[in-house]
Amino acid sequence: MNPIRRSALLALAAFALSGLAAGCGGSTSGSTGSMSVHLVDAPGDYLHVSLDVQTIEIQSGTSGWIVLGHPNKVIDLLALVNGLSEELANGASLPAGHYDQMRLVLGTDNTVTLSDGSVVALKVPSGSQSGLKFPVSFDVAAGTTKDVFIDFDAHKSIFVHEAGRSGKYLLRPVVRAVDRVVTGSISGLVTDATTHAPLAGAVVTAQQLDTTGTPVVVRTALTQADGSFQLDLLPVNASYYVVTQPVVGGTSYEAKASGPQALTAAAPLPTVNLACAAVSATGSITGAVTPAAGDADADAIVVRQRLDAGTLDVHPFVVRVTLPTEASGVETYTVDALPPATYGLVLERRTVASDGTETTAATASVDAAVLAGAPITLNFTAP
Rank of each mutant, 00 (worst) to 15 (best):
A163N: 15
D153E: 04
P135T: 15
S187E: 07
L189A: 05
V190E: 01
A206L: 03
A200M: 10
R172G: 11
A154D: 13
G164M: 07
V203H: 08
T195C: 11
K168Q: 14
Q129R: 15
V203R: 09
R172T: 09
Q208E: 10
D151S: 00
S130M: 04
R180P: 07
P198L: 00
V175G: 09
S185E: 08
L199E: 00
T145K: 15
G127W: 03
T144G: 08
V181T: 14
Q207A: 04
L189Y: 00
R219E: 07
V181S: 11
V174I: 15
V203Q: 06
P215M: 12
D210C: 03
V204E: 00
D151H: 01
T194I: 04
A202I: 05
I186M: 01
A142Q: 13
V178C: 08
H196W: 05
T205V: 10
A206T: 06
L189F: 00
G164F: 08
A142H: 08
D151Q: 03
V160R: 12
V182S: 03
H161N: 01
V175K: 09
R219Q: 13
V178N: 03
G143Q: 12
L199Q: 02
Q208L: 15
V160W: 06
L209K: 04
R172L: 15
K133S: 11
F134S: 09
T144E: 04
P215G: 13
D139E: 15
T195M: 08
V174M: 15
V175P: 01
V140Q: 00
G213T: 08
L132E: 15
T183N: 01
S187M: 03
I186G: 02
G188L: 07
S166P: 00
A202Y: 02
A206H: 02
V174Q: 10
T195D: 09
I158D: 02
T191V: 02
I150N: 08
T205P: 06
G164Q: 12
I150A: 08
R219K: 11
G201F: 07
L170T: 13
K156F: 05
A197E: 05
L170N: 10
A177T: 02
A142K: 14
V140P: 04
G143V: 14
S185R: 11
T191F: 00
H196P: 08
S157R: 14
S157I: 08
A206F: 01
V136K: 15
V217M: 02
T211L: 04
L171S: 06
K146N: 06
D210W: 10
T144I: 09
T183V: 02
A206C: 05
T212W: 09
V140S: 07
D153S: 08
V181L: 12
A206P: 01
P198Q: 00
L189T: 05
G127S: 14
K133Q: 10
P173Q: 07
G188S: 09
Q207F: 04
T195G: 06
A163G: 07
S166G: 06
R165P: 00
K146R: 14
T145L: 11
A197D: 11
R172V: 12
K133I: 15
E162H: 08
S128K: 06
A200D: 14
V182E: 13
F134Q: 12
T183H: 14
T144C: 03
